[in-house]
Nucleic acid binder design. Structure first.
Lengths: 184, 184
DNA sequence: TCAGTTTTCGAACCATGGTTCGAAATCCGA
DNA sequence: TCGGATTTCGAACCATGGTTCGAAAACTGA
């Protein structure tokens, strides 16, 4: 049931935005009464928190899995980019994940940011490793990582599901561009 | 006076976000009474609109100026990236510009999006020209442009003014990476 | 000094929307 | 079938915050 609500909420957050989404809309999307939402979640922010928790968790997991496999930094980076995009564009959950962090109260925000930072570090590690091995050009790994994540996270602003553009196609093009740009 | 208010508002929007910023805060920042804001602006959304109008206008202007000068696509792209970042990180105005479009009512939103699209087309034209001349690798100009703009717009999420990192340094690194990644 | 216009503001208004309340409906093991 | 826990919900509560009102203060030219 909680998962059901989270999915519905993520969907509404995704196309209405967090601020403009009312509890009544979430309830309608989840086919529940408004009051009943409070049986499963403590507050509106709480719902957002678990959306983010879930999707960042999955991205982090994917990054870890790629790290464990025997791959080149370029291959790992492509994998991360692809997974990140699919998570944001295909499944609804990921959309609000990185987008609406400020809406959370201090404590929850702190937790999500900590987890999101772990993810960012994981990506940066791949970039740094690529530079160390000489596969990638020498640049500031932090800035390169942030450029990459910015390009990825911004996709929710313009991507419209159901259009002619498949998430896979975006992933392909972005990987070519963003990984290619690092190569020596 | 209007300019004064806009500057103050842009500053508060920038670090509190549009949704979490109250008219009372804007008034305090502009050193005016809350009611007095309504003598100069019709509504809160109106204030946001003029912030965006102003900064997108300046970006568009810069793009036009670069277009008129005799430069290579790579040089033009570097110029756009640099100007875009300075506008977003140095001056307060630009921060909320691309970030909070959804907060506007239909009519105003439509206008800003139209103008922002013109800017996006200007950037895309540079990319396409680079590809046509063989300076840039053959990729989808639309996706490449959106990757670039995403990386740029996302900077407001992590950049903290007053830190050790100068906007110029970010512009330098981003130009190297994002333009370099397009080169053949 | 004196109208008339511009600018300012304290206080109150009021819609929106997150949240709570109390009770009814449903489920489930005994 | 019975009783308790779980789940559901309509209705109302209430804080937040954008907005308006009416009048006072400041400015301007004569």
């Amino acid at each position: 049931m909680r998962g059901n609500i989270l999915r519905a909420a993520a969907g509404v957050f995704r196309d209405r935005g967090f601020a403009d989404t009312g509890m009544r809309e979430i309830a309608a999307a989840a086919d529940l009464s408004t009051a009943n939402l409070y049986y499963y979640f403590k507050s509106k922010a709480d719902i957002l928190y678990f959306c983010q928790e879930h999707s960042v968790g999955r991205m982090l997991e994917t990054a870890g899995r790629l790290q464990r496999r025997r791959l080149t930094p370029a291959q790992r980076l492509r994998g991360v980019i692809s997974a990140h995009l699919v998570c944001m564009l295909d499944e609804l959950d990921g959309a609000a994940a990185h987008t609406e962090v400020d809406a959370l109260p201090a404590l929850l925000r702190k937790r999500i940011i900590a987890k999101r930072d772990r993810y960012e570090r994981a990506v940066r590690r791949i970039v740094a490793e690529g530079i160390r091995r000489g596969d990638f050009r020498r640049t500031d790994p932090t800035l390169a990582t942030r450029a990459i994540l910015g390009a990825l996270n911004w996709t929710t602003r313009w991507y419209r599901p159901g259009g002619k553009l498949e998430p896979k196609a975006v992933a392909e093009a972005f990987s070519d561009y963003l990984v290619g740009g690092l190569r020596t």
